[in-house]
Nucleic acid binder design. Sequence first.
DNA 1: CCTAACTGCCTCATCAATGTAGCACTTATA
DNA 2: TATAAGTGCTACATTGATGAGGCAGTTAGG
Lengths: 186, 186
Amino acid sequence: MGRVRADATRNLERVLSTGARMLADDPSATIAAIAVAAGVDRRTVYRRFASREDLMAAVYGARYDAVEKAIEAARLREAPVEVALHRYVEGIIAVNRKWPVETSRMLREETLHERRRGLIDEVDAFLRRATDEGLLRSDLPPGWVATILPPLLVHAAEDLSELSAAQAADVVVDTLLRGVGRTARS
Amino acid sequence: MGRVRADATRNLERVLSTGARMLADDPSATIAAIAVAAGVDRRTVYRRFASREDLMAAVYGARYDAVEKAIEAARLREAPVEVALHRYVEGIIAVNRKWPVETSRMLREETLHERRRGLIDEVDAFLRRATDEGLLRSDLPPGWVATILPPLLVHAAEDLSELSAAQAADVVVDTLLRGVGRTARS
DNA sequence: CCTAACTGCCTCATCAATGTAGCACTTATA
DNA sequence: TATAAGTGCTACATTGATGAGGCAGTTAGG
């Protein structure tokens, strides 16, 4: 009852996907557990990925690929700030749903630091532009928006699960810009 | 060079404190690593805590004690909503600094579910009151504010480290209610 | 002063997870 | 149809963390 060739690419995909889910849920998830959840033999995982580290790197890489695509699609440098912001938020929410990773663990990965740096710079530059063009307040601690945005998108992806990515983005952008307070105070 | 009695309580305190830090930073941190960081022998940790689980339970318990105190001090049921909100935010930020725990791991702890439930209900009730009294918008997905508040406080505690808890609370409450957008859009 | 409470250090058994190896079997592809 | 790629399954060695035992030494409290 050995399956084969056509499933080869499919298996790899499933290991990556379920691996991402499991590792996000519990970073110390066993390779065996991931293999079972992916409906694949543990040995197969090791045939594709040299080590545990290698699998995690692949998962993180897949996520970063998706993030890069989302950022490109948002056209953060050229598009009108409101449009770019919404597209970015929507894109990252979708990424967080397809590639949910435990962020704090990922940040420790040395090999991704340079890549990460590039993406962060991109977003920071955008947020500066948004501030300069009057979309965002300029009286907040520097980096504050950049700090709260990612976790906001993580929780939006998880807890607004009944909404589409676009609808969730509506909520996020709205509450981000206008806040959850009813009336503007002072 | 064996130290003793007076340090006994101090040692326990240090193990708990550094244990919280380390486990927050990496939930799979070794008991040995925690012991070293606390300047204590590994055996001593096991003398105080029957098992790894026991230590984590103690850490979570210490955090929950602090959270309960903060909620009590905020007087969520009686105090004016603006005041209560600010005191709650400030209190939880302080707790997050003194007892930083990896939240997602903690939520899985069965033994704390009932206790957690009580605290959640308390906060939920307060948020409802705040909505009824007109402080918060009522056109948002149910539970949305309750969802984004905790992670917001976590990141405020970490990334606004140069600000006092009270100052950080100012920022959080302000951005939470008014948002980070410059002008109110229709 | 002397006993009881602790601690540090060394050791040891146990167990779970990692990573490898080899064999039998199935299917795409040339 | 034959070959090669890929999988499942059943071991196996290794490593690292857990938890416990024992002993000498130090100090608070009677």
